[in-house]
Design a protein around this nucleic acid. Structure first.
Lengths: 240, 240
DNA sequence: GAAATAGTGTCTGTAAGACATTATATT
DNA sequence: AATATAATGTCTTACAGACACTATTTC
């Protein structure tokens, strides 16, 4: 090695992923149970999926986040965005720790979640009121709140909720996804004009969704691109 | 200690700060020179101010960022926001490294920058075209680009540029700060209506700025709050 | 009073909000 | 035919863009 070893004490480095979906008209987040061992902090508590960065397995932080995601959900290419980092001397009893938090948007999973043997029990939890009721391990409650805030804020002016639905979906379904995240009803006419004008959907033909009348099915035109609307819903200036 | 020691290899953890100001009608960023020693990576190259997290000195990532900022500029309470993190096995020749990047907005500094003995030479660099010409150490060019993008994007619909000016300032001065960041002229009438309607400024009385006519001076009403405008300038939907 | 800068007024265009209406399917 | 849902139309409102205009100071 060309450079002298850096051998002073280093913080612990972890990655956590806030995984959202919409199911039964509600925004849901995936949580896992901490192992039930007294050698581990927060035994048995609910926590965000995540863990230490493995400098041998993980080429990058994003790769690490995708690995956690794949382990828990089996999904390879969801919407994935960096949320921020939380690091201080007190959040982990094992020492100075910094976590890199990401958030992911997924269509509801058909498969069973706890299928793989290596993973702890994973379960969807509805986001009620302004945050989940439960106490979470570490500072995960704060991270989850930040994720919900970021998501709600971006949903006001982006196409993000489309990533929460299985394709193809109808405009009424998409509107319900927006309403689930925003926790308020939207006007149908305005919503449709706006969604279609934004030009991020492709028609897939009429679908029968068990409704009295058939509706047009749509899919996302480019899953690598989020569309920004010219204005925010409600035009109530809000914080990011 | 209650828990078994975590003693597998850990990534290096650093913090970098992208410090912006507006001077001479241009957006500027503060860069430092890497030490001129072959035992250090990127000797003599320009880099963002930053360095290793010191788990004894720094209570948190933000505290670490503020420490770096204070060391380089002497400024204690600028606008400071988390930008994101960059971590992989290749960005630092010394090993797997993750940096937590922040960006700060400052009024131009009257004081000399390189005053303290412990710090390397620091210097303002204009941001030209879409990024600085110079090669920077590590992946700092990418981080700087992300910071510029984030700043420009937010300036379209927030009061951020007010933090780049010394108080009190006039509306024409504030408009020039917006124009410097956005690199395009704005309409005076629209700008004024919008800035005043956003209600984040307090009048401080008329000022003589060497212009033929006096102008009203303003200061930021609440330096802890950024105001979001109801629409974006230009209404051209842009990425974040 | 000429020049330069500060500040105002007016008209237009775009897109969202509210709400009424039409269209198509099932029972 | 009644009903539930999909889709469209109309009117209003909010606010930015363009551009012309007035006001105040220095020379």
């Amino acid at each position: 090695m060309k450079y002298p070893l850096v051998d002073f004490p280093k913080p612990l480095t972890t990655v956590d992923v806030v995984i959202f979906t919409v199911q039964e008209g509600q925004l849901q987040v995936l949580l896992v149970r901490r192992p039930d061992a007294t050698t581990e902090p927060f035994p048995n508590a609910w926590a965000l999926p995540g863990g230490f960065v493995d400098i041998d397995k993980d080429a990058s932080l994003e790769a690490c986040a995708r690995r956690k995601l794949l382990e828990k959900t089996g999904v390879k290419t969801p919407y994935l965005e960096q949320l921020g980092s939380w690091g201080n001397s007190t959040r982990d009893p094992r020492g100075w720790a910094a976590t890199h938090a990401w958030f992911a948007l997924l269509a509801p999973l058909a498969l069973s979640l706890n299928s793989d043997a290596t993973s702890q029990a994973a379960q969807w939890h509805a986001i009620d009121e302004r945050s989940p009721r439960k106490k979470l391990a570490f500072d995960h409650r704060e991270i989850l709140q930040a994720a919900v805030k970021r998501l709600t804020s971006k949903v006001e002016y982006t196409s993000l909720p489309a990533f929460l639905l299985p394709e193809p979906f109808t405009l009424p379904q998409l509107q319900k996804a927006y309403e689930a995240v925003l926790r308020r009803p939207l006007d149908k006419s305005g919503f449709r004009t706006r969604a279609l004008a934004a030009n991020f959907l492709d028609e897939t033909g009429f679908m029968d969704v068990g409704a009295p009348r058939q509706a047009m099915g749509y899919q996302i035109r480019d899953r690598n691109q989020v569309v920004y609307f010219p204005r925010t819903f409600g035009a109530r200036s809000e914080g990011t």
